[in-house]
């Protein structure tokens, strides 16, 4: 499974999002630090989940990061996150 699909699967399983988009933006960072041949280094996640209700921004990012620890270990270098609770 590619990194993008793995990210989507883990966030779906862990946070039951009502909205989720995962974008591989690695091509926009060619030549930057952390980029590598084959990409899969820079991702953007836009996620809405009831699990975020009442949580601070840092707590929300930590929830996402924790689910994706394996992806960070596999070479994911940057993860831009927009995390909302429904209605925000």
């Amino acid at each position: 499974m590619g990194m993008k699909d793995a990210i989507a699967a883990k966030l779906t399983a862990g946070l039951s999002p009502t909205h989720l988009s995962v974008t591989d933006e690695s091509d926009r960072h060619i030549g930057h630090s952390g980029w590598r041949e084959g990409g899969e280094t820079h991702f953007r996640v836009d996620i809405t989940s009831p699990a975020f209700a009442g949580k601070s921004r840092i707590e929300r990012h930590r929830m996402v990061n924790a689910l994706l620890a394996e992806e960070f270990a596999r070479g994911m270098h940057a993860l831009a996150v927009t995390a909302r609770a429904p209605g925000e």
Partner: peptide, 19 residues
Amino acid sequence: WPTIPQLYVKGEFIGGCDI
């Protein structure tokens, strides 16, 4: 926190670029 940059104010971690 797995990424950089990281901003701290008065000893408190504020967040990374998105936050």
